[in-house]
Write a protein that binds this DNA or RNA. Structure first.
Lengths: 142, 142
DNA sequence: TTGACACCTGCAACTAAGTTGCATTACACT
DNA sequence: AGTGTAATGCAACTTAGTTGCAGGTGTCAA
């Protein structure tokens, strides 16, 4: 876990960027939570220890980490807020419980490769990326 | 095409709701465009002929049509606005071109039934709904 | 055809999420 | 320790959508 933190931090410094108090804290929050977080989530997570963080800083930090490919943006259906999760893990999707709002990761068996190939052949559209999420009831809420 | 309009309008009146100027106009816009529209799109489409439509009315009308299952909400990755499209058509997904922003409908061959069954078995999560979109380059932009 | 009532509409003011400009602070390197 | 640039904080702004309320209009019954 901490090796993962070190890996990310040295990826940042290795490319000549500064390792600031806020930057380190934001990355740590993503590692601790392991789930998609909004700017508000990050701010709430940092508030207890660090009361003076500004929302502008967090928004800019999230943009910074996204541009460097350390986190990536995701949006959930029917939600207005941007969320981010750590990039670089295994390719997965999300299960979102409509009742308790819990989010789980899911790795599909057959991924969408064949569908994307078929789309290219039938329409000429070259898929670069897809977004897939499942909405329903988690085990506890059924 | 007009039979489809009639079908929707009589679905509205049949359930005891009024058929107003704005309501009819909004449904017509969705039928004409046949693609996901934001509130701003609808307003822009109605402005030429009908300069006095208010954005509040459009937002409320979209909520009305959604509650009655006539349109449904969709959100595209990296977009902040809500979009809606007519419900009731064949189950499909969207291809969104990153370059020209054009949107095409796509019907998948094998749909996600088996995956959803597998998810239920392995995690206990009952999928009610999914959202899937493909981002890439359309034939014209490649 | 008219009247009445509930639904619909428009306006203004508000909220939430995110963004921008600018002055100040603090990393990291010498 | 000093310096330059990246990072930060504050305030003001933007965009998308929402709410309260007063007034208007479609529909149904008489």
């Amino acid at each position: 876990m901490d090796t993962e933190l070190d890996r990310i931090l040295s990826e940042i410094t290795g490319r000549g960027f500064r390792l600031t108090r806020v930057r380190r804290a934001v990355v740590e929050v993503f590692l601790q939570r392991g789930l998609p977080l909004s700017a508000a989530d990050v701010i709430a997570a940092l508030r207890p220890g660090n009361s003076s963080i500004n929302k502008t800083t967090i928004y800019r930090e999230l943009a910074f980490l996204e541009e460097r490919g350390i986190i990536k943006e995701i949006r959930f259906l029917h939600e207005r807020v941007k969320r981010y999760e750590l990039a670089g893990g295994e390719h997965h999707h999300h299960l979102i419980c409509v009742k308790c709002r819990k989010v789980e990761d899911i790795v599909l068996e057959g991924d969408l490769e064949e569908e994307e190939q078929r789309i290219l052949e039938s329409t000429g559209f070259r898929v670069l990326n897809h977004s897939l999420e499942f909405v329903g009831l988690c085990q506890g809420c059924r």
